[in-house]
C-alpha cells in the first residue's frame, strides 16, 4: 500500500511532481482498465484517464486528505465516462464489432478487439469507390437510414441499398483477409450467412 494521505497532503501543499507521479503510477492501470471496459476504445479510455489526472492536478490545492484518491478519481472521471458510454451505445461501428466478435472465439477476441476492428474497417474503406464510401459512412458510421440518404443524394432507395450492399461485401472481404489467420473458415461462413440474411431482409430495411 502507498501512504495516500501523506501523498495527498504533500501534493496539496505544493509538493512535487514526484508524489503525484507515485499516485499516477498506482492508479493509472486500474482506472484505464475500468474506463476501457466500458468504452472499448483505448483512445477514448486514455483520454478520460488523462483528463482526470490533469484535473486532479489542477485542483490539487482544494484536495481533502480525508477522501481517498480512488474516490476523487472516480468523481472526476464519472461524467466524462458516462458521456462516452452514451456515445458508444449509439456507435454503429461498435454494434458491428459486437456482431463480428460474436462469431470468433473468446481467445481471438483478446487479440481482435474493437480498436483492431476499427483499424480494419478504416483500411477496408479505402477499397470503396467515393460514392460507396459516402453511403457507407453515412449509414454505418453516422447511422442515417437508407431513405434519408436517398433523398439527400437525390437517388433512388434501391440504388442506395445496392451501393451499400456492395460496399459492405468489400469491407467484409478486406476484414476477412486481415483477420484471416485466426479462424478463416468460421469468419467466411459468418460473412456468407450475414450476406444471406442481409439480402433476404434488405426489402425490409
Amino acid at each position: 500500500m502507498i501512504d495516500e494521505k501523506k501523498l495527498i497532503s504533500s501534493i496539496k501543499l505544493g509538493g512535487g511532481n514526484k508524489d503525484f507521479k507515485i499516485l499516477y503510477d498506482y492508479y493509472y492501470p486500474g482506472l484505464y482498465q475500468f474506463c476501457y471496459s466500458y468504452v472499448k476504445s483505448s483512445e477514448i479510455a486514455r483520454e478520460i484517464v488523462h483528463d482526470s489526472f490533469v484535473r486532479l492536478w489542477e485542483n490539487r490545492d482544494r484536495l481533502d486528505e480525508s477522501r481517498s484518491a480512488k474516490n476523487y478519481l472516480f468523481t472526476i472521471s464519472r461524467n466524462q465516462l458516462i458521456k462516452e458510454i452514451r456515445r458508444q451505445m449509439k456507435n454503429p461501428l461498435l454494434r458491428d464489432y459486437i456482431e463480428f466478435a460474436g462469431g470468433i472465439g473468446t481467445d481471438a477476441r483478446i487479440m481482435y478487439d474493437y480498436d483492431t476492428f476499427v483499424a480494419g474497417v478504416e483500411k477496408a474503406k479505402m477499397a470503396l469507390s467515393p460514392r460507396q464510401r459516402e453511403i457507407y459512412v453515412k449509414n454505418k458510421e453516422e447511422g442515417i437510414p437508407v431513405k434519408e440518404i436517398a433523398s439527400e443524394l437525390g437517388i433512388g432507395e434501391q440504388v442506395v441499398r445496392n451501393q451499400l450492399s456492395a460496399a459492405l461485401s468489400k469491407v467484409r472481404a478486406v476484414l476477412v483477409r486481415m483477420f484471416g489467420n485466426i479462424d478463416e473458415i468460421i469468419i467466411i461462413s459468418i460473412v456468407i450467412l450475414w450476406e444471406i440474411c442481409r439480402k433476404s431482409f434488405s426489402g425490409m430495411l
Binding site: 492501470p29 475500468f34 480512488k70 472516480f74 458510454i85
Partner: peptide, 21 residues
Amino acid sequence: PDDVIGSILAEDWNDCSQGGM
C-alpha cells in the same frame, strides 16, 4: 438518467481492486 448510471459505475469502481501497482 446520469445519476443512476453513475451509481452503477460507482459500485463497480468500488469493487475494483485498488490501483494496479
